[in-house]
Each structure stands twice: as C-alpha cells, then as structure tokens.
Design a protein around this nucleic acid. Structure first.
Length: 357
DNA sequence: ATAGGGGTACGA
DNA sequence: TCGTACCCCTAT
C-alpha cells in the first residue's frame, strides 16, 4: 500500500512538472486529477498539496511565468477544501490571493496599449464577477482585497491612478506573498510529496533581479498571454476620453462587440454584428464534489413475486386500469411492501410477455 | 408520472 | 447458466 502511494506521488510529481501547451490544458489536467482523487475523498490533505505544488512548480520552473486566472482558480479549489475540512487555515492565504488577483489584473496595464481592452476585461472578470461576489466568510477575503477593488475601479476612470498602479511591482509582490503562503502551508499540513529540492535551489540561485524587478519589455514578451489578440500601438494622450466612456459601464457584450468590430472577415470587410442571445448558464460542477457511493451501491435483495402479489396486481389493473401503478401500489402497500411502481410496471410487462395473467 | 427499451445482478 | 427481478435511461 505504501508503495502504491509512492508510485502515485511519483506519477503526480511527473505530471505536475510536465510541460503543457497552454494554461487551458493544464487547467483541465488539474480538474481531472481532482476528479479522480475525489473517489478517495478522505485524502484532502493530498489534494491540497497537489494544488500547492501546481502553483509552486509554476513559480519555480520558469523565471518568467505568467501569473494568471488559472492560479486564482486553484485558490478557489483550495478554499473549498479548507472550508470543508474545518482544519487550520494558513493565515497568509488571503494575502497571497489578493496579490495574485492584483497581478493578474495589473499585468495587462503594462501592455501600454491605446485601447486596453484586456485590462478592462481583467477588472471586470476578476474584480466585478469573481471577487465582488465572494461569499460572506470567504477565506480569501481581506480588507486589502477590498481596498484594491476600489483602487482598480477608480483606475478605470483616472489615468493617474493607472500610472501609479502600473509602476508598482505587483508581480514581485505576488511571488513574495505566494512564497510566504507556501512556507506557512507546509508547516500547517506537511508535505506528502518529495520536496522539489533540485529545482528549488536552482530557482533561488537566480532569484535576484527576476522577482524584484521586472521591466515592461519582459512582461510584454512573456508576462501576458494572448498578446497576439491585442492591437499594437502607442499610448496616445487623447485616449482618456475613449477609455472613460468605455469604463463607465463595461459589460462583456460591449467589450466583445468592440473586439468583434475590429475583426475582419476573409473578404476583408468588417464583420457585421449579429443579434445573439446569451448562452445558457453552464452549471458548474466542482471537481471537489464529494463522491457518494451509497446512491448507486444499494440494490434491494431480489424477492420472487408471490402468488398473492400477482393476484393483487391483476386485480389492481382491473379496478384502476393499466398504468396506474402508483395508485395500485398505494392501495396495497401492505401486500407489495418494498416494491416500487417500476417493479409493478416491470412485473406486468413480464406477466403479459409470458402469458400468465 | 409512465411507457418501453435495454442492461445487469441475483439466486436457484 | 438461465430466468427473473431490479435498475437506468429517454421520450412523452
């Protein structure tokens, strides 16, 4: 059994360190792993470590990793696990979450684009849709988070605030807060995996300069995904008005619209916008959902139909009519006992079939 | 809620 | 192994 655990850990370690095409692919790996392990649901310490390792590996394996929404998602999973287990929670979790959320947003400011839709969308996506809907008593909530939220909201209207935000090293801060969180987390619930010593040392050797100071060129090249989707251009002075008018009431449809309008079709014409309905709400199923085998495991012990039951069923059909299974069942609960409407239906089917009615 | 197709577990 | 009882799914 112990050897199985070792094998499992080794496989996961391998998986965590494997290169992924994009964050989407990685995200789906995380989701699948959580689903697989939700079958052994008692092992939530293992799941937490797994999630931590994912972020940790991102930070250590590459000097220019992009802190992204994917990492926020991992925090959501972690929170769910902590809440469910009612175990001691590392206090640094909310600070780390805040710093990551800030970096996920501010990184788009460094693009210095004229119509910085990516920044607008990040504010909307992360701060309006995700954070402002945070439940009461969320482990990820903090006063600091709230302060950032209002700062970022005002930044949409005020270029001075944007400049100030852009000049802070949110990335370095995020990495620092994550480190603090890891350190505390490992003392809180240990670490079933073998430590990533080799990589850790390597990263620490190169730490200076990379985490402290990140210039905008590096961000532009490596810090932000989907850069190809951005419209390149220089920051213009008269952008303020446009920016302001968008930001007063951004909704995704409008933002999408602006982007669509900028896309041209094969013929080179600007694609006309079509009326469209909102897509139906996709129900989100958490991969952490508790696995409940009871519902599917139970099967009643087979009981042969007695002569009396068959007679009662036959009379029931005669008096109430074929198909009134519920009525027939309720009328003779004493005789049918554990049987269900479905059983009556099936029994009648077989009685007809084998001609013993 | 029911009909009916189809699959499978149980027990003799 | 086979017949029966039970289960599950989908359309109505």
């Amino acid at each position: 059994m112990e050897r199985m655990d070792d094998l499992r850990n080794a496989l996961l370690e391998f998986l965590i360190r494997s290169p992924f095409r994009d964050t989407e692919e990685k995200e789906s790996m995380v989701k699948h792993m959580l689903q697989v392990y939700s079958k052994s649901d008692n092992d939530s310490g293992f799941k937490k470590t797994f999630l931590l390792k994912i972020i940790q590996n991102d930070l250590l394996s590459s000097h220019s990793i992009s802190i992204s929404d994917h990492h926020l998602k991992i925090f959501d999973y972690l929170e769910e696990l902590f809440l469910r287990d009612a175990v001691p929670v590392p206090a640094t979790i909310s600070a780390a979450y805040c710093a990551v959320a800030v970096e996920c947003t501010i990184k788009y400011l460094h693009l210095n684009l004229p119509h910085n839709l990516l920044y607008l969308r990040a504010v909307k996506r992360i701060w309006r849709l995700r954070i402002s809907h945070m439940r009461e008593g969320s482990l990820l909530f903090s006063e600091e988070l709230e302060r950032w939220r209002s700062d970022l909201e005002t930044s949409l209207l005020d270029s001075k605030v944007r400049e100030r935000l852009a000049s802070t090293d949110t990335r370095g801060n995020a990495i620092m807060k994550l480190r603090a969180f890891f350190n505390q987390a490992s003392t809180v619930f240990g670490c079933p995996f073998a430590p990533l010593t080799a990589i850790e040392n390597e990263a620490q050797g190169n730490e200076g300069g990379h985490t402290e100071h990140t210039d905008n060129t590096q961000r532009n090249e490596e810090g932000v995904e989907n850069i190809g989707d951005c419209i390149s251009g220089e920051l213009q002075e008269d952008n303020e008005k446009t920016f302001l008018s968008w930001s007063t009431d951004i909704n995704d449809d409008e933002v999408d619209q602006v982007e669509k309008d900028q896309v041209k079709d094969e013929a080179g014409r600007v694609r006309t916008s079509r009326f469209h309905l909102a897509s139906p709400n996709k129900k989100k199923h958490s991969p952490l959902k508790i696995y409940r085998p009871v519902a599917i495991a139970k099967r009643r012990t087979t009981k042969r139909w007695s002569r009396l039951e068959e007679e009662t069923l036959k009379n029931g059909v005669e008096t109430f009519g074929r198909g009134k299974w519920k009525v027939i069942l309720n009328a003779h609960k004493d005789i049918f006992g554990e049987r269900t409407e479905d059983d009556l239906k099936d029994k009648w089917r077989s009685m007809i079939l084998y001609g013993c009615k």
